[in-house]
Design a protein around this nucleic acid. Structure first.
Lengths: 230, 230
DNA sequence: TATATTTGCGTATAATTAACGCAAACTCAA
DNA sequence: TTGAGTTTGCGTTAATTATACGCAAATATA
Protein backbone atom coordinates (compact mmCIF):
# COMPACT_ATOMS: atom_id res chain seq x y z
CA UNK A 1 0.00 0.00 0.00
CA UNK A 2 1.15 3.47 -0.69
CA UNK A 3 2.14 5.60 2.22
CA UNK A 4 0.26 8.72 1.19
CA UNK A 5 -3.48 9.00 1.33
CA UNK A 6 -4.98 8.71 -2.13
CA UNK A 7 -8.69 9.23 -1.54
CA UNK A 8 -10.86 11.76 -3.27
CA UNK A 9 -13.69 13.52 -1.54
CA UNK A 10 -16.88 14.43 -3.34
CA UNK A 11 -20.31 15.77 -2.53
CA UNK A 12 -23.60 14.58 -3.96
CA UNK A 13 -26.99 16.22 -3.72
CA UNK A 14 -30.42 14.67 -3.51
CA UNK A 15 -32.85 17.42 -4.46
CA UNK A 16 -36.51 16.69 -3.79
CA UNK A 17 -39.49 18.42 -5.30
CA UNK A 18 -43.21 17.86 -4.93
CA UNK A 19 -46.00 18.48 -7.37
CA UNK A 20 -49.44 17.02 -8.14
CA UNK A 21 -49.27 14.33 -5.52
CA UNK A 22 -45.85 13.15 -6.59
CA UNK A 23 -42.40 13.33 -5.09
CA UNK A 24 -39.64 14.07 -7.58
CA UNK A 25 -35.87 13.93 -7.49
CA UNK A 26 -33.44 15.84 -9.67
CA UNK A 27 -31.00 13.78 -11.75
CA UNK A 28 -28.36 14.62 -14.30
CA UNK A 29 -27.06 12.56 -17.16
CA UNK A 30 -23.49 11.47 -16.82
CA UNK A 31 -21.35 10.06 -19.65
CA UNK A 32 -18.77 7.34 -19.14
CA UNK A 33 -16.43 6.99 -22.11
CA UNK A 34 -18.11 7.28 -25.50
CA UNK A 35 -21.20 5.12 -25.22
CA UNK A 36 -22.11 4.62 -21.57
CA UNK A 37 -24.64 7.02 -20.18
CA UNK A 38 -26.09 6.94 -16.71
CA UNK A 39 -28.40 9.13 -14.73
CA UNK A 40 -26.74 10.28 -11.53
CA UNK A 41 -27.17 12.59 -8.59
CA UNK A 42 -25.70 16.03 -9.15
CA UNK A 43 -22.34 16.36 -7.47
CA UNK A 44 -18.59 16.42 -7.87
CA UNK A 45 -15.24 16.75 -6.17
CA UNK A 46 -14.77 19.24 -3.38
CA UNK A 47 -12.34 22.05 -4.12
CA UNK A 48 -9.46 22.70 -1.76
CA UNK A 49 -10.71 26.05 -0.55
CA UNK A 50 -14.45 25.52 -0.24
CA UNK A 51 -16.55 24.09 2.55
CA UNK A 52 -18.64 20.98 2.00
CA UNK A 53 -21.90 22.86 1.76
CA UNK A 54 -20.34 25.42 -0.58
CA UNK A 55 -19.29 22.55 -2.81
CA UNK A 56 -22.85 21.27 -2.97
CA UNK A 57 -24.24 24.71 -3.74
CA UNK A 58 -21.67 25.29 -6.44
CA UNK A 59 -22.24 21.95 -8.13
CA UNK A 60 -25.98 22.46 -8.11
CA UNK A 61 -25.57 25.90 -9.57
CA UNK A 62 -23.24 24.70 -12.30
CA UNK A 63 -25.47 21.84 -13.28
CA UNK A 64 -29.05 22.76 -12.55
CA UNK A 65 -29.76 26.30 -11.31
CA UNK A 66 -32.42 25.29 -8.81
CA UNK A 67 -33.43 27.45 -5.88
CA UNK A 68 -33.27 25.52 -2.60
CA UNK A 69 -35.58 26.01 0.36
CA UNK A 70 -33.79 23.54 2.63
CA UNK A 71 -30.50 21.65 2.71
CA UNK A 72 -28.97 19.30 5.24
CA UNK A 73 -26.13 16.85 5.38
CA UNK A 74 -27.42 13.31 4.93
CA UNK A 75 -24.63 10.77 5.28
CA UNK A 76 -21.09 10.09 4.16
CA UNK A 77 -20.70 7.12 1.88
CA UNK A 78 -17.34 5.48 2.27
CA UNK A 79 -18.03 1.90 3.25
CA UNK A 80 -17.62 0.40 -0.19
CA UNK A 81 -14.06 1.32 -1.15
CA UNK A 82 -14.87 0.57 -4.79
CA UNK A 83 -18.06 2.58 -5.05
CA UNK A 84 -16.36 4.48 -7.86
CA UNK A 85 -14.48 1.97 -10.02
CA UNK A 86 -11.92 4.51 -11.15
CA UNK A 87 -10.66 5.88 -7.84
CA UNK A 88 -11.37 5.65 -4.17
CA UNK A 89 -13.95 8.35 -3.65
CA UNK A 90 -15.75 9.15 -0.44
CA UNK A 91 -18.94 11.09 -0.94
CA UNK A 92 -20.65 13.37 1.52
CA UNK A 93 -24.31 13.41 0.54
CA UNK A 94 -26.65 16.33 1.18
CA UNK A 95 -30.37 16.31 0.64
CA UNK A 96 -32.29 19.41 -0.27
CA UNK A 97 -35.78 20.63 -1.04
CA UNK A 98 -37.23 23.01 -3.60
CA UNK A 99 -40.72 24.40 -3.50
CA UNK A 100 -43.31 23.54 -6.10
CA UNK A 101 -43.03 26.88 -7.90
CA UNK A 102 -39.37 26.07 -8.64
CA UNK A 103 -39.97 22.71 -10.14
CA UNK A 104 -39.43 23.77 -13.71
CA UNK A 105 -35.98 23.31 -15.21
CA UNK A 106 -34.60 26.73 -15.96
CA UNK A 107 -33.90 27.66 -19.54
CA UNK A 108 -30.22 28.29 -18.97
CA UNK A 109 -29.53 24.64 -18.31
CA UNK A 110 -29.21 21.88 -20.80
CA UNK A 111 -32.60 20.36 -20.24
CA UNK A 112 -31.59 17.19 -21.99
CA UNK A 113 -29.20 16.40 -19.22
CA UNK A 114 -31.15 17.57 -16.19
CA UNK A 115 -34.50 16.09 -15.33
CA UNK A 116 -36.98 15.57 -12.55
CA UNK A 117 -37.83 11.91 -11.98
CA UNK A 118 -40.82 10.62 -10.13
CA UNK A 119 -39.65 8.81 -7.04
CA UNK A 120 -41.14 5.51 -8.17
CA UNK A 121 -39.70 5.75 -11.66
CA UNK A 122 -36.01 5.96 -10.88
CA UNK A 123 -33.71 4.17 -13.35
CA UNK A 124 -30.48 2.37 -12.47
CA UNK A 125 -28.16 5.16 -11.41
CA UNK A 126 -24.39 5.55 -11.59
CA UNK A 127 -22.14 4.34 -8.76
CA UNK A 128 -24.06 3.67 -5.52
CA UNK A 129 -26.47 6.50 -6.18
CA UNK A 130 -29.53 4.29 -5.86
CA UNK A 131 -28.41 3.47 -2.34
CA UNK A 132 -27.78 7.12 -1.57
CA UNK A 133 -31.20 8.05 -2.89
CA UNK A 134 -32.88 5.35 -0.79
CA UNK A 135 -31.10 6.68 2.27
CA UNK A 136 -32.31 10.17 1.46
CA UNK A 137 -35.92 9.05 1.01
CA UNK A 138 -35.84 7.26 4.34
CA UNK A 139 -34.47 10.38 6.01
CA UNK A 140 -36.96 12.66 4.30
CA UNK A 141 -39.83 10.50 5.51
CA UNK A 142 -38.52 10.49 9.05
CA UNK A 143 -37.81 14.20 9.08
CA UNK A 144 -41.29 15.02 7.80
CA UNK A 145 -42.73 13.52 10.97
CA UNK A 146 -40.68 15.50 13.46
CA UNK A 147 -39.81 18.77 11.73
CA UNK A 148 -41.95 21.08 9.61
CA UNK A 149 -40.02 20.66 6.38
CA UNK A 150 -43.12 19.79 4.40
CA UNK A 151 -43.72 23.50 3.97
CA UNK A 152 -40.40 23.80 2.11
CA UNK A 153 -41.83 21.57 -0.60
CA UNK A 154 -44.98 23.65 -1.00
CA UNK A 155 -45.42 27.11 -2.47
CA UNK A 156 -45.47 30.04 -0.08
CA UNK A 157 -49.24 29.90 0.17
CA UNK A 158 -50.91 26.54 0.04
CA UNK A 159 -54.12 24.72 0.65
CA UNK A 160 -54.62 22.55 3.65
CA UNK A 161 -55.45 19.71 1.33
CA UNK A 162 -52.09 20.20 -0.38
CA UNK A 163 -50.31 19.75 2.91
CA UNK A 164 -52.42 16.76 3.74
CA UNK A 165 -51.79 15.15 0.35
CA UNK A 166 -48.08 15.80 0.62
CA UNK A 167 -47.91 13.88 3.87
CA UNK A 168 -50.09 11.07 2.57
CA UNK A 169 -48.19 10.57 -0.67
CA UNK A 170 -44.65 10.86 0.68
CA UNK A 171 -45.28 8.79 3.78
CA UNK A 172 -47.55 6.41 1.87
CA UNK A 173 -50.09 6.46 4.67
CA UNK A 174 -53.78 7.16 5.04
CA UNK A 175 -54.84 9.86 7.41
CA UNK A 176 -58.04 11.42 8.67
CA UNK A 177 -58.29 14.77 6.96
CA UNK A 178 -60.19 16.39 9.83
CA UNK A 179 -57.94 15.22 12.63
CA UNK A 180 -54.87 16.21 10.65
CA UNK A 181 -56.19 19.71 10.12
CA UNK A 182 -57.21 20.06 13.75
CA UNK A 183 -53.79 18.98 14.98
CA UNK A 184 -51.73 21.17 12.69
CA UNK A 185 -53.93 24.20 13.33
CA UNK A 186 -53.68 23.63 17.09
CA UNK A 187 -49.92 24.20 16.83
CA UNK A 188 -50.63 27.79 15.88
CA UNK A 189 -47.84 28.36 13.38
CA UNK A 190 -50.05 28.56 10.31
CA UNK A 191 -51.43 31.91 9.22
CA UNK A 192 -54.65 32.01 7.29
CA UNK A 193 -54.37 34.38 4.37
CA UNK A 194 -57.21 36.31 2.77
CA UNK A 195 -56.61 34.60 -0.51
CA UNK A 196 -58.54 31.79 -2.02
CA UNK A 197 -57.20 29.26 -4.40
CA UNK A 198 -58.63 28.88 -7.86
CA UNK A 199 -60.51 25.68 -7.37
CA UNK A 200 -61.66 22.91 -9.59
CA UNK A 201 -64.67 21.87 -7.60
CA UNK A 202 -66.14 22.04 -4.13
CA UNK A 203 -66.14 24.72 -1.51
CA UNK A 204 -63.48 27.42 -2.00
CA UNK A 205 -60.54 26.94 0.33
CA UNK A 206 -58.46 29.50 2.14
CA UNK A 207 -54.73 29.58 1.53
CA UNK A 208 -52.37 29.14 4.45
CA UNK A 209 -48.82 30.28 5.13
CA UNK A 210 -46.22 28.74 7.39
CA UNK A 211 -45.16 31.34 9.96
CA UNK A 212 -41.52 30.51 10.69
CA UNK A 213 -41.26 33.22 13.32
CA UNK A 214 -44.11 31.80 15.34
CA UNK A 215 -42.68 28.33 14.89
CA UNK A 216 -39.31 29.46 16.26
CA UNK A 217 -41.00 31.09 19.23
CA UNK A 218 -42.76 27.84 19.99
CA UNK A 219 -39.50 25.93 19.73
CA UNK A 220 -37.97 28.34 22.25
CA UNK A 221 -40.77 27.43 24.63
CA UNK A 222 -40.00 23.75 24.28
CA UNK A 223 -42.54 22.90 21.60
CA UNK A 224 -41.93 19.73 19.64
CA UNK A 225 -43.44 19.26 16.19
CA UNK A 226 -44.77 15.81 15.49
CA UNK A 227 -47.02 14.13 12.94
CA UNK A 228 -47.82 10.53 13.63
CA UNK A 229 -49.71 8.08 11.46
CA UNK A 230 -51.19 4.74 12.27
CA UNK B 1 -5.50 27.23 -6.51
CA UNK B 2 -3.93 23.94 -7.31
CA UNK B 3 -5.67 21.78 -9.81
CA UNK B 4 -5.47 18.54 -7.84
CA UNK B 5 -7.47 17.89 -4.75
CA UNK B 6 -5.37 18.22 -1.65
CA UNK B 7 -7.73 17.31 1.16
CA UNK B 8 -7.13 14.67 3.77
CA UNK B 9 -9.89 12.53 5.18
CA UNK B 10 -9.93 11.40 8.77
CA UNK B 11 -12.25 9.67 11.19
CA UNK B 12 -12.86 10.59 14.80
CA UNK B 13 -14.67 8.61 17.46
CA UNK B 14 -16.77 9.77 20.35
CA UNK B 15 -16.96 6.85 22.73
CA UNK B 16 -19.49 7.14 25.53
CA UNK B 17 -19.56 5.19 28.75
CA UNK B 18 -21.87 5.33 31.75
CA UNK B 19 -21.17 4.55 35.38
CA UNK B 20 -22.46 5.67 38.77
CA UNK B 21 -24.87 8.22 37.42
CA UNK B 22 -22.31 9.82 35.14
CA UNK B 23 -21.79 9.92 31.43
CA UNK B 24 -18.16 9.61 30.34
CA UNK B 25 -16.30 10.14 27.10
CA UNK B 26 -12.99 8.65 26.06
CA UNK B 27 -10.17 11.05 25.21
CA UNK B 28 -6.54 10.63 24.25
CA UNK B 29 -3.66 12.98 24.76
CA UNK B 30 -2.19 14.40 21.62
CA UNK B 31 1.15 16.18 21.37
CA UNK B 32 1.78 19.12 19.07
CA UNK B 33 5.47 19.89 18.64
CA UNK B 34 7.52 19.60 21.81
CA UNK B 35 5.48 21.41 24.41
CA UNK B 36 1.86 21.62 23.33
CA UNK B 37 -0.39 18.89 24.60
CA UNK B 38 -4.12 18.63 24.04
CA UNK B 39 -6.76 16.11 24.83
CA UNK B 40 -8.50 14.97 21.67
CA UNK B 41 -10.99 12.47 20.37
CA UNK B 42 -9.39 9.22 19.21
CA UNK B 43 -9.05 9.14 15.45
CA UNK B 44 -6.76 9.49 12.49
CA UNK B 45 -6.43 9.42 8.74
CA UNK B 46 -8.30 6.83 6.71
CA UNK B 47 -6.12 4.33 4.88
CA UNK B 48 -6.55 3.86 1.16
CA UNK B 49 -7.91 0.33 1.40
CA UNK B 50 -10.15 0.46 4.44
CA UNK B 51 -13.74 1.51 4.83
CA UNK B 52 -14.68 4.42 7.06
CA UNK B 53 -15.99 2.23 9.85
CA UNK B 54 -12.92 -0.02 9.60
CA UNK B 55 -10.79 3.07 10.05
CA UNK B 56 -12.62 3.97 13.24
CA UNK B 57 -12.35 0.46 14.61
CA UNK B 58 -8.63 0.30 13.82
CA UNK B 59 -7.86 3.64 15.39
CA UNK B 60 -9.78 2.75 18.52
CA UNK B 61 -7.97 -0.53 18.73
CA UNK B 62 -4.58 1.04 18.26
CA UNK B 63 -5.19 3.70 20.84
CA UNK B 64 -7.57 2.38 23.45
CA UNK B 65 -8.63 -1.27 23.18
CA UNK B 66 -12.24 -0.68 24.17
CA UNK B 67 -15.04 -3.10 23.38
CA UNK B 68 -17.91 -1.34 21.63
CA UNK B 69 -21.58 -2.24 22.00
CA UNK B 70 -22.83 0.26 19.43
CA UNK B 71 -21.38 2.47 16.72
CA UNK B 72 -22.98 4.83 14.23
CA UNK B 73 -21.86 7.56 11.90
CA UNK B 74 -22.52 10.95 13.45
CA UNK B 75 -21.63 13.74 11.04
CA UNK B 76 -18.91 14.85 8.66
CA UNK B 77 -17.08 17.97 9.70
CA UNK B 78 -15.82 19.91 6.74
CA UNK B 79 -17.38 23.35 7.00
CA UNK B 80 -14.40 25.07 8.56
CA UNK B 81 -11.66 24.58 5.99
CA UNK B 82 -9.07 25.46 8.63
CA UNK B 83 -10.29 23.14 11.37
CA UNK B 84 -6.82 21.59 11.28
CA UNK B 85 -4.27 24.38 10.97
CA UNK B 86 -1.72 22.19 9.22
CA UNK B 87 -3.75 20.78 6.32
CA UNK B 88 -7.26 20.73 5.02
CA UNK B 89 -8.76 17.75 6.79
CA UNK B 90 -12.34 16.59 6.59
CA UNK B 91 -13.36 14.36 9.44
CA UNK B 92 -16.10 11.77 9.48
CA UNK B 93 -17.17 11.43 13.10
CA UNK B 94 -18.62 8.24 14.58
CA UNK B 95 -20.11 7.92 18.01
CA UNK B 96 -20.01 4.68 19.94
CA UNK B 97 -21.06 3.15 23.23
CA UNK B 98 -19.37 0.78 25.66
CA UNK B 99 -21.14 -0.97 28.49
CA UNK B 100 -20.35 -0.26 32.11
CA UNK B 101 -18.34 -3.44 32.60
CA UNK B 102 -15.92 -2.22 29.91
CA UNK B 103 -15.29 1.16 31.42
CA UNK B 104 -11.85 0.34 32.78
CA UNK B 105 -8.86 1.25 30.68
CA UNK B 106 -7.12 -1.93 29.70
CA UNK B 107 -3.59 -2.58 30.95
CA UNK B 108 -2.09 -2.86 27.48
CA UNK B 109 -2.72 0.79 26.74
CA UNK B 110 -0.69 3.72 27.90
CA UNK B 111 -3.10 4.82 30.61
CA UNK B 112 -1.43 8.18 30.87
CA UNK B 113 -2.63 9.05 27.43
CA UNK B 114 -6.09 7.52 27.43
CA UNK B 115 -8.72 8.58 29.91
CA UNK B 116 -12.41 8.69 30.59
CA UNK B 117 -13.71 12.21 31.24
CA UNK B 118 -16.96 13.07 32.90
CA UNK B 119 -19.15 14.82 30.38
CA UNK B 120 -19.31 17.99 32.45
CA UNK B 121 -15.56 18.11 33.04
CA UNK B 122 -14.29 18.25 29.48
CA UNK B 123 -11.18 20.39 28.92
CA UNK B 124 -10.43 22.46 25.83
CA UNK B 125 -9.86 19.89 23.12
CA UNK B 126 -7.71 19.88 20.00
CA UNK B 127 -9.08 21.17 16.68
CA UNK B 128 -12.88 21.47 16.64
CA UNK B 129 -13.29 18.45 18.87
CA UNK B 130 -15.37 20.31 21.44
CA UNK B 131 -17.87 21.04 18.69
CA UNK B 132 -17.82 17.44 17.53
CA UNK B 133 -18.38 16.23 21.07
CA UNK B 134 -21.30 18.61 21.56
CA UNK B 135 -22.85 17.31 18.36
CA UNK B 136 -22.43 13.77 19.61
CA UNK B 137 -24.03 14.53 22.97
CA UNK B 138 -27.01 16.12 21.27
CA UNK B 139 -27.40 13.08 19.06
CA UNK B 140 -27.01 10.65 21.93
CA UNK B 141 -29.74 12.42 23.87
CA UNK B 142 -32.06 12.38 20.89
CA UNK B 143 -31.34 8.76 20.04
CA UNK B 144 -31.98 7.66 23.62
CA UNK B 145 -35.57 8.82 23.27
CA UNK B 146 -36.42 6.92 20.11
CA UNK B 147 -34.16 3.88 20.07
CA UNK B 148 -33.24 1.47 22.85
CA UNK B 149 -29.52 2.27 22.93
CA UNK B 150 -29.55 2.91 26.68
CA UNK B 151 -29.11 -0.82 27.16
CA UNK B 152 -25.79 -0.65 25.31
CA UNK B 153 -24.46 1.56 28.08
CA UNK B 154 -25.53 -0.82 30.84
CA UNK B 155 -24.14 -4.22 31.78
CA UNK B 156 -25.90 -7.27 30.36
CA UNK B 157 -28.08 -7.56 33.45
CA UNK B 158 -29.18 -4.40 35.12
CA UNK B 159 -31.54 -2.97 37.67
CA UNK B 160 -34.57 -1.04 36.65
CA UNK B 161 -33.31 1.81 38.77
CA UNK B 162 -30.07 1.79 36.76
CA UNK B 163 -32.01 2.25 33.55
CA UNK B 164 -34.11 4.94 35.09
CA UNK B 165 -31.07 6.80 36.45
CA UNK B 166 -29.31 6.54 33.11
CA UNK B 167 -32.18 8.29 31.38
CA UNK B 168 -32.50 10.90 34.09
CA UNK B 169 -28.83 11.79 34.21
CA UNK B 170 -28.10 11.81 30.49
CA UNK B 171 -31.28 13.63 29.51
CA UNK B 172 -31.08 15.84 32.60
CA UNK B 173 -34.77 15.36 33.29
CA UNK B 174 -36.91 14.24 36.18
CA UNK B 175 -39.21 11.31 35.70
CA UNK B 176 -41.76 9.34 37.66
CA UNK B 177 -40.10 6.05 38.55
CA UNK B 178 -43.34 4.07 38.55
CA UNK B 179 -44.68 5.35 35.24
CA UNK B 180 -41.29 4.82 33.60
CA UNK B 181 -41.18 1.22 34.78
CA UNK B 182 -44.75 0.58 33.69
CA UNK B 183 -44.14 1.95 30.22
CA UNK B 184 -40.89 0.13 29.53
CA UNK B 185 -42.27 -3.14 30.86
CA UNK B 186 -45.39 -2.76 28.72
CA UNK B 187 -43.16 -2.88 25.62
CA UNK B 188 -42.36 -6.48 26.48
CA UNK B 189 -38.73 -6.61 25.40
CA UNK B 190 -37.24 -6.87 28.88
CA UNK B 191 -36.68 -10.28 30.41
CA UNK B 192 -36.70 -10.62 34.14
CA UNK B 193 -33.83 -12.80 35.28
CA UNK B 194 -33.75 -14.93 38.40
CA UNK B 195 -30.82 -12.98 39.74
CA UNK B 196 -30.85 -10.33 42.35
CA UNK B 197 -28.38 -7.55 42.62
CA UNK B 198 -26.24 -7.12 45.71
CA UNK B 199 -28.01 -4.20 47.28
CA UNK B 200 -26.99 -1.42 49.56
CA UNK B 201 -30.35 -0.86 51.15
CA UNK B 202 -34.03 -1.39 50.56
CA UNK B 203 -35.95 -4.22 48.99
CA UNK B 204 -33.83 -6.56 46.84
CA UNK B 205 -34.34 -5.88 43.14
CA UNK B 206 -34.56 -8.28 40.24
CA UNK B 207 -32.10 -7.92 37.39
CA UNK B 208 -33.41 -7.39 33.87
CA UNK B 209 -32.02 -8.17 30.43
CA UNK B 210 -32.76 -6.46 27.15
CA UNK B 211 -34.14 -9.05 24.72
CA UNK B 212 -32.95 -7.89 21.33
CA UNK B 213 -34.76 -10.70 19.53
CA UNK B 214 -38.09 -9.69 20.99
CA UNK B 215 -37.33 -6.09 20.22
CA UNK B 216 -36.64 -6.90 16.59
CA UNK B 217 -39.87 -8.88 16.35
CA UNK B 218 -41.76 -5.87 17.65
CA UNK B 219 -40.05 -3.62 15.14
CA UNK B 220 -41.16 -5.98 12.37
CA UNK B 221 -44.71 -5.50 13.55
CA UNK B 222 -44.39 -1.75 13.31
CA UNK B 223 -43.54 -1.04 16.92
CA UNK B 224 -41.88 2.28 17.63
CA UNK B 225 -39.78 2.75 20.77
CA UNK B 226 -40.23 6.07 22.48
CA UNK B 227 -39.41 7.62 25.83
CA UNK B 228 -40.80 11.07 26.37
CA UNK B 229 -40.23 13.41 29.28
CA UNK B 230 -42.06 16.50 30.35
C1' DT C 1 -38.16 -4.15 67.10
C1' DA C 2 -38.51 0.36 65.02
C1' DT C 3 -36.76 3.16 61.12
C1' DA C 4 -35.00 4.18 56.76
C1' DT C 5 -34.83 2.78 52.09
C1' DT C 6 -35.94 0.93 47.70
C1' DT C 7 -38.91 -2.05 45.03
C1' DG C 8 -43.11 -3.49 42.84
C1' DC C 9 -47.85 -3.03 41.87
C1' DG C 10 -52.01 -0.46 41.75
C1' DT C 11 -55.75 3.28 40.88
C1' DA C 12 -57.91 7.77 39.70
C1' DT C 13 -57.83 11.55 36.79
C1' DA C 14 -56.30 14.42 33.00
C1' DA C 15 -54.91 14.78 28.35
C1' DT C 16 -54.52 13.26 23.89
C1' DT C 17 -55.70 10.56 19.86
C1' DA C 18 -58.83 8.27 16.79
C1' DA C 19 -63.26 7.70 14.56
C1' DC C 20 -66.86 9.73 12.55
C1' DG C 21 -71.14 13.22 11.53
C1' DC C 22 -72.61 16.90 8.94
C1' DA C 23 -73.65 21.51 7.10
C1' DA C 24 -71.56 25.18 4.13
C1' DA C 25 -69.93 26.71 -0.26
C1' DC C 26 -68.86 26.04 -4.45
C1' DT C 27 -69.18 23.69 -9.86
C1' DC C 28 -71.41 21.53 -13.30
C1' DA C 29 -74.85 19.36 -15.94
C1' DA C 30 -79.60 18.55 -16.84
C1' DT D 1 -82.98 26.81 -11.67
C1' DT D 2 -82.39 22.85 -9.45
C1' DG D 3 -80.15 18.82 -7.88
C1' DA D 4 -75.98 15.92 -7.80
C1' DG D 5 -71.21 15.85 -6.89
C1' DT D 6 -67.26 17.64 -4.48
C1' DT D 7 -64.35 19.72 -1.08
C1' DT D 8 -64.05 22.52 3.05
C1' DG D 9 -64.55 23.64 7.80
C1' DC D 10 -66.20 22.77 12.32
C1' DG D 11 -67.95 19.78 15.58
C1' DT D 12 -68.90 15.43 19.05
C1' DT D 13 -67.84 11.12 21.26
C1' DA D 14 -65.29 7.03 22.53
C1' DA D 15 -60.85 4.88 23.15
C1' DT D 16 -56.35 5.16 24.40
C1' DT D 17 -52.41 6.98 26.72
C1' DA D 18 -50.06 9.85 30.00
C1' DT D 19 -49.70 11.83 34.58
C1' DA D 20 -49.91 12.03 39.39
C1' DC D 21 -50.00 9.75 43.16
C1' DG D 22 -50.83 5.80 47.19
C1' DC D 23 -49.02 2.10 49.53
C1' DA D 24 -47.47 -2.47 51.03
C1' DA D 25 -43.43 -5.70 50.57
C1' DA D 26 -38.71 -6.73 51.43
C1' DT D 27 -34.55 -5.80 52.90
C1' DA D 28 -30.40 -3.35 56.12
C1' DT D 29 -29.33 -1.05 60.08
C1' DA D 30 -29.59 1.16 64.37
Amino acid sequence: MENFQNIRIAVDAIVFGYKNNNLYVLLIEQKFGLTDKYWALPGGLVKNDESLSDAVTRELHEETSVQLTFMEQLFTFGEDINRDSRNRVISVAYYALVDASNLEIKADTDAEKVQWFKIDEIPALAFDHNLILETAITRLKAKLTYEPIGFDLLPDEFLFSDLENLYCTILEKEIDRRNFRKKILSYGFLDQTEHFSPIKSGRPAKLFKFNKLKYNELIEKGFHFEIKFA
